[in-house]
Amino acid sequence: MTPEATTPLSGFEPAFRTCAGELGVWSAARLFVNAAWAAGGETAVEALHDDLGLRYPVVDDVARRVLTVRAPLGPPRVDGVLARCEGLRALVVVGVEAALLGPVVDSLPPQVDVVALFDSTFPVDATRVQASWAPRVRLADLASFQRAAGSRSALVTPVYGADVFRAVVAPIWVRAHGPEVRLQFRRLIGVNLVGPRMAAYPRWLIDTPADDFTDLVETV
């Protein structure tokens, strides 16, 4: 029997991409970094950061925050999002972050129709995603999400850092958001999971004008 040891953490990328596809890149980063913190503290987080941080700026950001506060990263505050969802009949989530969608869905009244569009940057296991969210959340695509439009409907998307002018979003937002969509929904809500813009270039993500959104909610 080989004695148990700690080898440099590496080779996590395929698993991270799977998680990022199904949970969202920020939720996956939080899951990995918090697991590393719980398993091996600062050393493990640094090792994970070395493995994934360069290629995934969100991992870099989350790892830095965990190392700064020396504690696992908590879930995002969703009270601001819920306040903006009051009176809605439908909520369309563009680009899923499980850490955000889960608490929001669990808090919304059951009569609110929740529709989700998954970003296709990373692979998505449709069976597992369906098992995780259906039937409370209806999965949709770019061709069909506008059926949920209306005066009591809103679009919501995760934001990975923003300043006064620009916000970093998942590519699916740019494909879903257009001049006609803006008129079809009561609110376009950006939920900032990261805070100020990340120091690293937002690889896998995309820049968009901050005024895409009628509401930009901070969760940090």
Binding site: T2, P3, E4, A5, T6, T7, L9, F12, A15, C19, L31, F32, N34, A35, A36, A38, A39, G40, A44, L48
Partner: peptide
Amino acid sequence: PVDVLRRRITVAV
């Protein structure tokens, strides 16, 4: 590699 750290992360993920 038999790595306790990697295994704990695996279970959590």
